[in-house]
Design a protein around this nucleic acid. Sequence first.
RNA 1: GGUUCCGUAGCUCAGCUGGAUAGAGCAACUGCCUUCUAAGCAGUAGGUCCUGCGUUCGAGUCGCAGCGGAAUCACCA
Length: 597
Amino acid sequence: MIEKKLQQAVATALKNLYGIEAAPETVTLQTTKKEFNGDYTVVVFPYVKQARKSPEQVGNDLGAAVIQMVEEVSDFNVIKGFLNFSVADSYWMQFVAERVGDTAYGLTNAAPDAKPVVVEYSSPNTNKPLHLGHIRNNLLGWSVSELLAANGANVKKVNLVNDRGIHICKSMLAWLRYGNGETPESSGMKGDHLVGKYYVEFDKHYKEEVSALVKEGMEEEEAKKQAPLMLEAQQMLKRWEEGDKEIRDLWSKMNGWVYAGFDETYRRLGVGFDKIYYESNTYLLGKELVQKGLDLGVLFRKEDGSVWCDLTGDGLDQKLLLRRDGTSVYMTQDLGTALLRHNDFGAEQLIYVVGNEQDYHFKVLKLILGKLGFDWADKVYHLSYGMVELPNGKMKSREGTVVDADDLITEMEATAEEMCREHGKNDDLTEDQRRELYHILALGALKYFILKVDPAKNMLFNPAESIDFNGNTGPFIQYTYARIRSIVRKAEEQCITLSDKLNISNHSLDDKERAVIKCLHDLPGTIATAAENFSPAMVANYAYDLAKNFNSFYQDTPILREENADIKAFRVQLCAVVAQALYNTMKILGIQLPERM
RNA sequence: GGUUCCGUAGCUCAGCUGGAUAGAGCAACUGCCUUCUAAGCAGUAGGUCCUGCGUUCGAGUCGCAGCGGAAUCACCA
């Protein structure tokens, strides 16, 4: 890598010239801003004091020394304290030649013995359909998994379905009362939406009951607890936990509907899992851990029998782990599932893609795992992401302001269709091919829209404005790819083969051409940095930058129109490598690229 | 109230380990399709990087304080 060579050379020169000891990796090397001449810039300010010379002098001294040491460096200039190196065109052209046909460019395979990195994401409740917030979770989870895999990790994707609890009982109860035996088949409604409908139905009647009780003079808090529907739902949960066959059968039936619905949504989103855990199977895990914690003395029991972990030493509160009736809570379950997952996979790292509303929960989870003596506690990483907000605030299912996942995908497909018809470039495709294209573009727009934003930040979605297809968007990148593929197809028709050895040693790159190559050159480093930061957004922004550079090059540089056959072939090769880079980065985002559009 | 996260152009967002005159897209305005896909390209306009203090040769980036927004602090999950 040229970057390392430069850093090494600068470090050596610093020692030889001034006796300054600097580790190569501490030499700040950055790409030169485009308003200056050069490709890489070294900032020399940090050394002027020790060198006892002016920044310009230090820059010139270092530049003169480095150009002798690194054969790829063709020139340098110094402006103020900035030492700009130019890299010879031959290096860039050689770089392109070496990447031609490399379908894995930028990607690192996992070592055969790499321990798994387990990524949990999605983790839906089974009482309502998925909404835009879940979409962000699913896309992030999938993409981060792909990103880590692209950076050499052995990734396992897992889903922990929250399939039991009071929420599903509410849906079940409402269905029994008001459903008249309605099924997905009889209603033509997707299973998850049908069950969600009864969850809303429950809430409606429950609220009526509460307000009736309040009218009779009961305190609202009390009314919420005493409403018959709530009592009945709790009763149902108890019967579920006792294994009551009637309840379990109904539960299985309705959850089955939901899973069929979820599968459909997952399929459309293009996400999937290596393993699916169900909370009904794991919710009792963790109790043994609590006992172990009591034995170790890191947990304590209060007079009423409840069990707690004292985290005041860590600046937090006490955390409940077992209720006084001995039942477990969310944290207890998560302790259990963490251990289960660690044991199932022999995992190197456990990553949880969960919204930032649970920052506190995961902080506590890690602490307690540590107190229980698991040395892998620090391998738990909470990939916390911000909320998706609407123009008037957070999505609230009770207020009917959620953006439904299925509806959104359908709308995006309709928009894609509209855009395609407007452009009228695909009239000769079959109906199936067109549908496929609409889907690819719709999902490309949606995924890019969501993934280009830094996970840590809340993001805004305005339902009144459809997601863009122009500018910094998924379709922009898809379009760039389709254009390149068109060129490569035409080149093949002209019998230009990518593997040709070219006689281009006299060719000097033009600025646009060099800019594209330099951007391509950054791909491996970008993926590494993005993976370290668990940030698909960095990959998305890189891909946009590459596509933008390419389009600018494409606009005013002849490719197939180039008269010199070798230069023409070289540019076709460059196109092919750019296409591959776009393909590999978009794959990390879960975005498909069309051959034409 | 405690803790955590966020605050960059009218709007949506970039800005990696501190480095040169803070960048894109959308929206507005100008040009460019008889030539490789105009879902594109080139340009104009748009900034108190929330505020203040500090560290540094150098701060959008680091520290402290304040302001604004969000989340969380359940015997819910």
